[in-house]
Design a binder for these strands. Structure first.
Length: 426
RNA sequence: GGAGACGUGUCCGAGUGGUUGAAGGAGCACGCCUGGAAAGUGUGUAUAUGGGAAACUGUAUCGCGAGUUCGAAUCUCGCCGUCUCCGCCA
């Protein structure tokens, strides 16, 4: 959530930055500014009335103590009148406040100056490519066929148990996923991230904190009976660990990692994009999250990008890094780098990680602050990234590493998986 | 799920309608004492937001929300959480 004081002092800049996103409701900026002015005016009126009520009530107390009942009754009448006046002000104040916060929640984050203009994924900027795309043999198959052949994932049974878009991992497939999770977590904790195992459901306040609500309401599974949401990413519970806290300056940066299942309704997704492991309602992911001092957040973003990049190098996958354009960037982000791996049999780039700096957009909602060098409390910056999303990594590994003999396991993973090859009779 | 107890500042802990933003203690900071330290001693020690150059000052906050009252940490109701007993249970 943007800060109203910043919006007021930089109205033109805010509009200009929002335009980079192709944000359709730029008019909200001016609306918010005038709403805020009106809000302040009415607040002042209400507070002044309250001040009169407070002081006079104290006087009544003193008069009662002295036994001057009549004088006390006179003052009571005055207070009652003020309170009636205040009641009407409060009613309109409340309505204004609701309108104001409702509208403020609709404003997305301001894109960083390095964010390219653009509307669609085609306008994203390729920052760099790494790794080499393998030459596949003649009988090479897309992963959804490999999975069947090696009996690694059973989509039919997944669909029977839960519905389409739910996978049942099986045998070596399940073990491959488990070994990747273990490897990713070890890699992250070795880099100084503290491991968490968070709740997979969160309440409304938590979902607002990281910005999933109200923007992505329809994307989350909602357990209405208990007013809980299934998390779409570990970012939600883990970033909120420090919500409403003023952390010690010496505790920064706070580095956290978590493995979790992620749940997404993916309403309206169709076509070949969703085939096999490419898009699921439930998938596994390991996430890294940092809370940092504002002045360091862009250095930290680069550090996190490097961290994820090295992981892909260890997995020996061909990858590229994209700087997302304004139109493709998430609601809460100021700058996002996406990582894609090339899945050689489907000849397709698959997004496996998204590393973002949210600056104060999330921490303003969560009120995560620290006392800076001058002793002033200040919002920290929050960042996160996937390291990594499992199903698409598995898809790319299966496709890129297939051979007549079986599927090769990258060296870095062999100790975790317990073998160098997944054999056909497996 | 049933019955009961409880939820106060960094921590412990007082406070059942009126100078209580909140006693007292611990902790912390600064000063005195000391050769130095400990002990002792003095002072200070919440957050947010509005006004003000500042001193200072208005408002809100004793789990959260609503209500009663001229006035609520104190009374009433709802919610959340913690603990104890019972039930159920991986």
């Amino acid at each position: 959530m943007l800060q109203i004081n910043f919006i007021k002092q930089n109205a033109d800049l805010v509009k200009e930055r929002l335009a980079v996103r192709n944000f359709a409701h730029i008019g909200l900026v001016d609306e918010l500014i005038s709403l805020d002015e009106e809000l302040r005016k009415q607040k002042l009126v209400s507070e002044n009335l309250q001040a009169s009520v407070n002081t006079t009530s104290k006087e009544i107390g003193a008069l009662m103590a002295k036994g001057e009942k009549e004088a006390a009754e006179e003052k009571k009448a005055a207070v009652t009148a003020w309170k009636e006046e205040q009641a009407t002000v409060k009613t309109s104040l409340q309505a204004l406040e609701e309108e104001f916060t409702g509208k403020l929640l609709l404003l997305p984050n301001l894109p960083h100056t390095s964010v390219p203009k653009g509307k669609t994924p085609e306008d994203n900027e390729v920052v760099l490519e790494g790794g080499t795309v393998p030459q596949l043999f003649a009988g090479a198959k897309p992963h959804w066929d490999i999975i069947k052949e090696y009996d690694l994932v059973d989509f039919e049974t997944g669909a029977k148990l839960a519905g389409s878009g739910f996978a049942l991992f099986k045998g070596k497939g399940a073990k491959l996923q488990r070994s990747l999770i273990q490897y990713f977590l070890d890699y992250n904790t070795a880099a100084g991230y503290t491991e968490f195992a968070p709740p997979l459901m969160v309440n409304e306040a938590t979902a607002y904190g990281t910005g999933q609500l109200p923007d992505k309401e329809g994307q989350m599974y909602h357990i209405t009976e208990d007013k809980l949401y299934l998390i779409p990413t570990a970012e939600v519970p883990v970033t909120n660990v420090y919500a409403q806290q003023i952390v010690k300056e010496s505790d920064l940066p706070i580095k956290m990692t978590a493995y979790s299942s992620c749940f997404r309704r993916e309403a309206g997704s169709f076509g070949s994009d969703v085939r096999g492991l490419n898009r699921l309602h439930q998938f596994e992911k390991v996430e890294v999250i940092q809370l940092v001092k504002p002045q360091h957040s862009y250095e930290v973003l680069e550090e996190m990008v490097n961290h994820v990049e090295r992981l892909l190098q260890f997995l020996e996958l061909p990858y590229r890094i994209l700087r997302l354009c304004g139109g493709d960037m998430g609601f809460t982000s100021a700058l996002t780098y996406d990582f894609e791996v090339f899945s050689a049999a489907q000849q397709k780039w698959l997004e496996v990680s998204s590393v973002s700096n949210f600056e104060t957009f999330q921490t303003n909602r969560m009120k995560i602050r620290y006392k800076n060098e001058e002793g002033k409390t200040e919002l920290v910056h929050s960042l996160n990234g996937s390291s990594l999303a499992l199903p698409r990594i598995i898809a790319a590994l299966l496709e890129n590493n297939q051979s007549e003999n079986g599927i090769h396991i990258p060296k870095a993973l062999q100790a975790y998986f317990g073998a160098a090859l997944i054999e056909k009779n497996g």
